[in-house]
Structures are given as structure tokens and as C-alpha cells.
């Protein structure tokens, strides 16, 4: 026998019908996806509707609210974005993207019909089914409304499964408000929409102040029955969710029923590059959605 090693081809050796999480060939595989429409929401943010090109892949692509995906433009870059659309639509997602740098600036120049690559979905999501039969507080600061739009869509589609639903949404100014065109429908679906801006302009007739003021009004004077049967989803800058969660905690809403979404640098989304670690926890695997108890136990989280 010739003492020669045989080359092991790892892809042909792996069993068929793998799950994406243990399929070697899916690691770097990107779905080709088309930007079917784009809609400018503010100066900085644009909503992109993106559809996977291959019908078979489209059928298989499903996600849960709170998960994110990696969007790639060849040669330009790849970055994580929260999926901001209804989980009941397969193979098509909406992403609301703020111009922040390299990739996102380039993205603002591409047109309808452009082909991008997407990988995912990745990470944990909000446990929507666990929330059935409960009150829900959806609390967003600024761009934090983007990841909340997916659970909101879920609530709308399953409205009968939830009790009282409140959205508390704060931004710097009225020009920063996202998804204004949807507010009427949310209200018609019996979702209480509480919007507050830090600085009004002459046309603004709503509340002015801090998000926590509005939240206080909703929470005050409720009974324990309400507090104990309420879930909260909080998205926004770290300082904001710290204040909000502390307030919720004072009203005895259990920490395991508050969910936040963390943002860190991410280069892989699959627990390999280590860039997303908080303390020593992978945000891309164990998060981005964490319950507040877990966040309290993470070093470096806030």
C-alpha cells in the first residue's frame, strides 16, 4: 500500500438533509436576493423590501421576530440588520437601514432591482407564543422601533391572543418618526400608540418629553394583576433601556418578562469571529434578544 493520504472532501462527506446550523456548506452561502422596493422614511433611514430570488429558498426562509440577518454587497461589505417585517411572510423581508458608514451609504445609492446577498436568519427572537394571553408593552427609542416592527406585525396578525397592547415610542423630534404611515392601522388593530418627542416642531400636537414620562403614565395606578401578566419588549440605545427596565422593575414586572435587543460589532453572525461578545457571551448566538435578567448578569452589557 502506498503511504499516501487521501484528500478528504468535507462537503461531499457530510450527510444530506442537514440543518442550516450544522451544514458546512451554508457557512458562507448567501441567498441571492433582490431589492424589490425602497422607501425613504427620513433623511437617514430607508426601508428596503428584499426578496430571495430562488423560489425554493424563498419557501424555506423563515424567521422569528427579533432575529437579524447579514446583508452583503460584494466588494463593499456585509453587516447585520434586524428583520423589520412580519414573520408570516416567507422569503421576503423588510429592513430599515440607517446610513451609518461604508455599506449603508453604498446601499443608499443602489436602485430597485439590485441583487444583494443575505445570510441568516441569526440569533434569538422574542418569545411571542409565550406571551399569548398577556398584556404587551412595546417600548422603542429612536431606531429601536425597527426590530419592534416584526413583533408588532405578529401582534396585529394574532390580535385575539393578546390582551392590552401598548406601544411607547420616543424620538428626538417629529422628523425622526419612523413608519408614520402605519400608525392608523396599528390604532385600528386596538394597539395603544403613545408617541413622545424630545423636541417638538410647530406642527407637532402630541406629547413632548421623555419616553419614561409616557411609560410612567401607563404603568401608574394599575393593579398587580396587570403587572404580573405583562411582557415588555424594549429596544433602543443602552442608556434608554437601562432606565426603562429599572422603571418596569420597580412596578414588579418580572425581569424574565422584559426583553431587550443588544447591538454589537458583528462579522459572522455564527459565533466564530468573537467580535460581538459581551463579557464572554456571543450576542449573535445567545442574543441579540436577551431577557433583562440575563443582561443584568452579563459583564459589560450596559
Amino acid at each position: 500500500m502506498k503511504p499516501e493520504l487521501k484528500f478528504v472532501d468535507i462537503i461531499s462527506q457530510q450527510p444530506k438533509m442537514q440543518k442550516r446550523k450544522n451544514d458546512l456548506s451554508s457557512f458562507e452561502y448567501t441567498y441571492r436576493a433582490e431589492i424589490t422596493s425602497m422607501y425613504q422614511l427620513t433623511d437617514m433611514e430607508t426601508l428596503y423590501r428584499i426578496q430571495i430570488v430562488n423560489p425554493e429558498e424563498r419557501r424555506r426562509f423563515a424567521f422569528i421576530p427579533g432575529q437579524f440577518l447579514m446583508l452583503e454587497i460584494p466588494g463593499i461589505g456585509e453587516a447585520p440588520f434586524s428583520i423589520s417585517s412580519s414573520p408570516s411572510i416567507h422569503g421576503e423581508v423588510e429592513l430599515c437601514i440607517r446610513k451609518a458608514g461604508n455599506l449603508t451609504n453604498f446601499l443608499s445609492k443602489v436602485g430597485r432591482g439590485a441583487i444583494v446577498g443575505i445570510r441568516g436568519p441569526f440569533g434569538t427572537g422574542f418569545p411571542m407564543e409565550e406571551m399569548h394571553g398577556q398584556n404587551i408593552l412595546l417600548i422603542a427609542g429612536g431606531l429601536g422601533l425597527v426590530p419592534l416592527r416584526s413583533p408588532i406585525a405578529y401582534v396585529q396578525e394574532n390580535r385575539s391572543h393578546f390582551r392590552e397592547v401598548n406601544i411607547v415610542y420616543g424620538t428626538k423630534s417629529p422628523q425622526h418618526l419612523l413608519f408614520t404611515y402605519q400608525y392608523d392601522v396599528w390604532i385600528k388593530d386596538d394597539i395603544n400608540l403613545n408617541i413622545i418627542v424630545e423636541k417638538a416642531d410647530p406642527s407637532w400636537i402630541g406629547s413632548v418629553g421623555m419616553l419614561t414620562d409616557t411609560l410612567m403614565k401607563i404603568l401608574e395606578g394599575r393593579d398587580n394583576e396587570f403587572y404580573h401578566n405583562t411582557y415588555a419588549i424594549v429596544c433602543g440605545p443602552p442608556v434608554m433601556f437601562k432606565f426603562v427596565c429599572n422603571m418596569l422593575n420597580k412596578f414588579n414586572i418580572p425581569m424574565q418578562k422584559m426583553f431587550v435587543s443588544l447591538e454589537r460589532r458583528m462579522h459572522c453572525g455564527m459565533g466564530k469571529c468573537c467580535r460581538c461578545n459581551v463579557g464572554s457571551t456571543y450576542t449573535c448566538l445567545k442574543g441579540p434578544v436577551f431577557d433583562y435578567w440575563t443582561v443584568m448578569n452579563l459583564k459589560e452589557a450596559i
Binding site: I10, K21, N22, K272
Partner: peptide
């Protein structure tokens, strides 16, 4: 672990 990295696996499986 989850999401095995083929770039590593391909080399590792070919090490004697």
C-alpha cells in the same frame, strides 16, 4: 459547535 466553520474543518480533516 453550531455553525461549524468549513474553512477550518477542511484543513483539520486533512491533517495527519
Amino acid at each position: 459547535s453550531v455553525f461549524p466553520m468549513p474553512y477550518y474543518v477542511a484543513k483539520r480533516k486533512n491533517m495527519f
